[in-house]
Write a protein that binds this DNA or RNA. Structure first.
Length: 259
DNA sequence: ATGGTAGACCTTCTA
């Protein structure tokens, strides 16, 4: 079973690029971030034609997440629990049906810049809510994948120029500690389990020639419950997609489970 | 010294 995550930076501006990748990669499940549209504007028919069921948690202009699955999705949850006043669409979760069901969550974790503002506080509060919700989900003791744009650079090795990120919310000690705390619950970083090496990135900024200079960072992650980690067989970063026409600043990441 | 690009959309915000 192949499960993908991709921050597409506007699904409607990126539709041809995204469909092109889906036609060749054909993941069984995918979570998309930054779709930047309300539910009604999501191009569901285009994905249905490829054989996917579609679930959307959209928002105008900013954020917005979606989940696509070849088999029906059950128990769909839109929005991260823990703050009824949070209006930002950054979380979607469902159980992917099949002989061995998998619970999949797609997240668009807040960027948090600039540090020292309410945006950074919101990021850390969101990570605390994710921590509490993940602890609840782990109680099911089932295959669980929490994938998405975490907006956290876990280690210096995950940035081409770590010194350039020292003042950034993505590389703050608090952000990195919160990401570690998720793993300390019993979640495994799929990249690390598959012996991913330094210098493998999932994001290159549009600005200042970041892509041609390979000034990348690894911020798109997949965390797995023990029941999923025991079945992990592959982890792919589709780096070449960054060099295509009209690319997102993030590339697709694919997790393979023996399910 | 504070650039550079991309997307949504009303002019500036977010990344």
């Amino acid at each position: 079973m192949r499960l993908a995550t991709w921050n597409v930076n506007s699904i409607n501006a990126r539709l041809e690029t995204v469909l092109g990748w889906f036609e060749e990669a054909m993941p069984d499940v995918a979570v998309l971030q930054e779709i930047k549209c309300v539910d009604e504007k999501f191009p569901a028919e285009a994905f249905e034609r490829l054989g996917y069921n579609v679930a959307v948690h959209g928002q105008k202009t900013y954020n917005g997440v979606a989940m696509l699955s070849k088999t029906p999705m059950e128990d769909i949850r839109r929005g991260l629990p823990g703050d009824d006043g949070d209006e930002q669409a950054r979380y979607i979760e469902a159980v992917i049906s099949g002989p061995r069901p998998v619970r999949m969550a797609g997240i668009y974790l807040p960027n948090g810049n600039p540090v020292g503002t309410e945006k950074f506080a919101y990021k850390l509060a969101w990570m605390d809510r994710l921590h509490r919700h993940a602890a609840e989900l782990l109680k099911y003791e089932e295959p669980l994948v929490i994938a998405g744009d975490y907006n956290v650079i876990p280690r210096p090795e995950d940035a081409d120029k770590p010194e350039g990120w020292l003042g950034d919310a993505l590389f703050q000690p608090e952000s990195r500690a919160a990401y570690r705390a998720l793993q300390n619950l019993g979640l495994t970083d799929a990249f690390m389990q598959m012996d991913g090496s330094a210098g493998e990135y999932t994001f290159w900024d549009y600005q200042a020639g970041a892509w041609p200079r390979n000034h990348g960072i690894r911020i798109d992650h997949a965390l797995l419950s023990p029941q999923a980690a025991d079945r992990l067989t592959g982890f792919e970063i589709h780096r070449d997609v960054r060099g295509r026409e009209k690319p997102s600043d993030h590339v697709p990441v694919v997790v393979e489970l023996n399910i």
